[in-house]
Amino acid sequence: MSDQGPRIFKREHSDMSISSFVDSDGLPHVGQVIHQDEPYCSTIDQVTNSKYIYRRKGSETVIVDYVAVDTKNKNLQKANIRFRHPRNPVIGDKFSSRHGQKGVCSQLWPDIDMPFSGITGMSPDLIINPHAFPSRMTIGMLLEILAAKGGCLHGNFVDATPFSDDTESESLVEDLGSKLRALGFNYHGTEVRATGQVDQITRQPIKGRKRGGGVRFGEMERDSLLAHGAAYLLHDRLHVCSDYHVADVCSLCGSLLTTTTIQPPKRVIREFGGLPPTKALKKVKCLACQTSKGMETVAMPYVFKYLVAELAAMNIKMTIQLNSRAAA
């Protein structure tokens, strides 16, 4: 390397092969379009006189935006060349919102193929799958979407300062909801369900928004509530709001399946001085034990009963041993 001297930006006047790309100072013209593998600057070694041509790598066509040189040095040894890359969105490009919701453009549709509003004629610029939200919990993005919609329809800015108390209403959601409502939109969409359609066999809430189901409270959600120690909420989500069932269990034989209801004898229940009629007590009995002595009621998920029935169908008997809480 010792036989090499300092290299300076320069193009040999005789070198016509690159003269249309590189000026005599070895630098490109501003505004020049450079395609793949085309030269954009050249240097010459001051000792060996060997030249080196820099060529554009990569398949993108670029435009020279700006060229700056170091004028402190007499020899042109340092230069700053900036390129512009014109990039239209294409399939496979990755985009991101400020909330870190990233995604890949999977299809580009012409305007006419997009859905449109029958009233205002607005059509979306971008469609994002709502499944991106529940698991990632970027509530801020949802709020920003609502705020942006309300803000642009009213023509004003929305104050998004967190933890500030200067709003009049109870919560931001209420504020934004009423704004949208004033413009004839829904207050908010379908939310987490408390009641709704259930599956016939398991009596658990059904899948799929189309059929009236809710947002699934899955294993990871369960784990997070466990970690928080929020046992009551967990019980509410997975049991009370799901397939809560009070089953009759025979404590004598431990069976869930042999219980049967006894038809109460038809008799007029006398009313005792304005009190509501007394509920007929034991109206279930165990068919195996032929008695209703050991009948107890136990709250359990309905699928548990279904599981016991399925096991029985393959010759597995499941029995339940009951203890009062004090004894346990």
Binding site: P110, D111, F116, S117, G118, I119, T120, G121, M122
Partner: peptide, 18 residues
């Protein structure tokens, strides 16, 4: 025409409803 580039589209909004 607007099919080639949106700048040629003469329509700001066109919509219909039942």
């Amino acid at each position: 025409i607007g099919k080639d580039h949106a700048k040629w589209s003469p329509a700001a909004t066109v919509t219909f409803m039942y």
